[in-house]
Nucleic acid binder design. Structure first.
Lengths: 218, 218
DNA sequence: ATATTTTTTTAGATTTGTCTAAATTTATTT
DNA sequence: AAATAAATTTAGACAAATCTAAAAAAATAT
């Protein structure tokens, strides 16, 4: 079955919001997709007709199994293309998102499976997010917030949950990226700010609000 | 400026028909795009409004300079993606067309220039068609002797330099004519004879003295 | 528990690209 | 040169995805 780019975008957005907040609302979805609530309602009805969504008006909605399957294939495509753009075409991981938004709608499954093979079956995309396998299975791995790791323990940045331009700009300035190895040296109780040490660099400080969006594996 | 996939398809189709036949007709274009003449007329008006096409009703049409420029960028994208699919993802050159039809509408110019670089600035796509450079310049097809083309590369017979009755009789027997598409499968060092494969036919052998008079474009 | 606010949905319009059927223009025949 | 045929265009309709404005339902506050 093939779906329009627009439908695919809805499915992906619902999938992400569902993961994050458990429940998805019409307004939240409209906000995520930069559109109007009325447009969302229109599309929800279409997705229901195609059995991609379980939806009763005013009663909320969530993806059907089929809808989840389609969403995972799009997530897979998005993340593999991002990996390709960074690893092979040498883009920075902060500039690939928009290109991947387009590439994720290329339909051929054979193409994406070949791309996966060409890239060496990567487990995570350049932002640290896991890449679903060919059958759509998503490996869960535990990302821990910087706030929750013990002092003086080497940790590797695996994921940035807030990927706003502003956040990325700040992290770039502090030399923090996916894969950066660091240790938390001090925690200040007053404002929950952290002092970090990155190998071969001088100590830096980040606020609680930044730290809670930086996830690591230890 | 960004154009819809549909507009891009029209521009590309007009470009190709223009190359081939000099003049393009509404019917020919409808046939090429598998659509109806009425739909073509509708689109021609839109393309004119956007100054991509010079068009006066009932008087025929052709691409403006701007339209040609856009068409060449799409051709560039199509051929680079085909090259990528064959060289990097190991698809056969006969199975990549539909995928490239989708990929050619990915908008980022930076992406396609990086891809070009990644691929080593190839001059021709897997079908032998020339790839426009970053500025949209299209290298003129050169006529090369069959003796000088690489193995397993699709070539189209463009010229026969010796047009004696004897030569033409021989070529007729071998089913070789202007426009015939073939590949050189083997070169025998002993007598420089060649083994050729024409689509849908069994392999044939020709001598060096015949081959040097058959020119092709790749 | 009623009033108010917020969220969601409906009704009707708009844009893009397509279609069919009919009209018009151009080309071809006799 | 008039008649016929072919090519092209117009008129009016439709589907997909979106929008605005208004109505309906649910949530919240007094």
């Amino acid at each position: 079955m093939k779906y329009s780019s627009s439908k695919e975008n809805y499915l992906k957005a619902i999938f992400h919001l569902q993961e994050e907040d458990g429940v998805v609302t019409t307004n939240a979805l409209a906000n995520e997709l930069q559109t109007r609530p009325a447009s969302v309602t229109d599309m929800l009805k279409k997705l229901k007709t195609q059995k991609l969504l379980l939806y009763e008006k005013y009663q909320g909605f969530k993806l059907s199994n089929e809808g989840k399957k389609v969403a995972l294939q799009i997530v897979r495509k998005h993340r593999l293309w991002e990996f390709f753009l960074v690893e092979k075409l040498h883009f920075g991981w902060e500039e690939v998102h928009d290109m991947a938004e387009e590439l994720e709608h290329i339909s051929s499954k054979k193409l994406i499976d070949r791309l996966d093979e060409f890239l060496g079956f990567p487990k995570n995309d350049p932002h640290g997010d896991p890449i679903p396998d060919s059958s759509g299975k998503l490996a869960m791995k535990q990302h821990i917030s910087l706030l929750d790791i013990p002092l003086n323990t080497l940790a590797e940045v695996s994921n940035i949950s807030d990927q706003s331009i502003e956040m990325l700009e700040l992290l770039k300035h502090k030399s923090i990226a996916i894969g950066t190895k660091l240790e938390v040296k001090r925690k200040f109780a007053f404002d929950n700010s952290l002092e970090l040490k990155i190998k071969n660099q001088s100590a830096i400080t980040i606020s609680e609000s930044v730290a809670k969006n930086v996830f690591v594996i230890i």
